[in-house]
């Protein structure tokens, strides 16, 4: 709006625009304040030396000490299936999928630590080296994943967060749970 333009309508319009801008700013402020206190829940787990996490709303249950049934010719990161109270659920070797180290070689059929996760409608079990705490972190403390991450990992890690004096990669469940095979 030009300063020279002094017609009453233009002035009125200019004033209205100013009011709207201020209101928009104050609304945005409120938004920021709200998100500052908003937290998200994470379940921590360890793979070899590194810590990762899954968002708690994607976790169905923690499943310990189970026997995996091998299914022939599965992709290498899928170990097989388990029977959880009548429901058959696949088992993902998440370390192999992300190509990171793990304490175990997962060649046997017994697995000590599993996290049953879901990203509707897909459900699977992640086998991990150790299951840690459930923590709440402020949403705005989430950082983009490390730019130095290997491409393989970058796909599966949606964000990272610095907590309890370590950097934790948050697993992208949608990506990890991408279905195997064509729908029948």
């Amino acid at each position: 709006m030009s300063e020279n333009d002094t017609s009453p309508t233009a002035a009125l319009a200019g004033r209205a625009a100013e009011i709207l801008r201020q209101r928009a700013e104050s609304l945005a402020q409120v938004d920021l304040e709200q998100s500052a206190v908003e937290t998200i829940g994470l379940l921590l787990f360890r793979l070899a030396e590194e810590w990762y996490a899954v968002r708690i709303d994607g976790v169905r249950e923690i499943y310990n000490d189970f026997e995996v049934t091998r299914i022939p010719r599965l992709p290498s990161h899928v170990l097989g299936v388990i029977n959880v109270r009548g429901e058959i659920i696949s088992v993902i070797n998440v370390a192999a999928l992300m190509r990171v180290a793990s304490d175990q070689d997962h060649s046997g059929v017994r697995e000590p630590n599993g996290i049953i996760v879901s990203s509707e409608p897909f459900v699977s079990t992640l086998v991990v080296d150790e299951i840690g705490d459930i923590i709440d972190v402020p949403r705005d403390s989430l950082e983009p994943p490390l730019s130095t991450l290997d491409k393989n990992q970058a796909d599966f890690v949606s964000a990272s967060v610095y907590t309890q004096e370590r950097l934790v990669g948050i697993i992208n469940l949608e990506k990890v749970l991408e279905p195997v095979g064509e729908p029948v």
Partner: peptide
Amino acid sequence: IKTLGTHLQRVDNVAGVTVLGAGEVVP
């Protein structure tokens, strides 16, 4: 007969699994 679950939609050679009396899962 049980399906392989939602995550494994189609697996070559395997139509599903069954659970035997002892709880053993069999493709």
